[in-house]
């Protein structure tokens, strides 16, 4: 069951998730109000990604 996908393709979305989380964490440090709200959205992305991955389980 080997699927030939390059390393880059495999890690593309995880890398985006990581960047979104780090950006969210840092933005919340820089201000209050709307910046906090932006960081909540950014940090919700990995949480939803995990939820989605658990729903669409592929054997």
């Amino acid at each position: 069951m080997t699927r030939r996908r390059g390393l880059r393709a495999v890690f593309a979305i995880p890398l985006l998730l990581a960047l979104a989380s780090i950006a969210g964490l840092i933005v919340a440090l820089t201000g209050d109000g709307v910046r906090d709200a932006a960081s909540w959205i950014a940090l919700a992305i990995p949480v939803f990604a995990v939820g989605w991955a658990m729903k669409t389980r592929r054997t």
């Binding site: 964490l25 919340a28 440090l29 906090d36 990995p46």
Partner: peptide
């Protein structure tokens, strides 16, 4: 310090932090 403990940014951030 805040980045390590996730104790900033309002309640939603703390909740998301706890979920992660």
């Amino acid at each position: 310090q805040p980045l390590h403990f996730g104790d900033y940014g309002g309640l939603p951030l703390k909740i998301l932090w706890a979920v992660l």
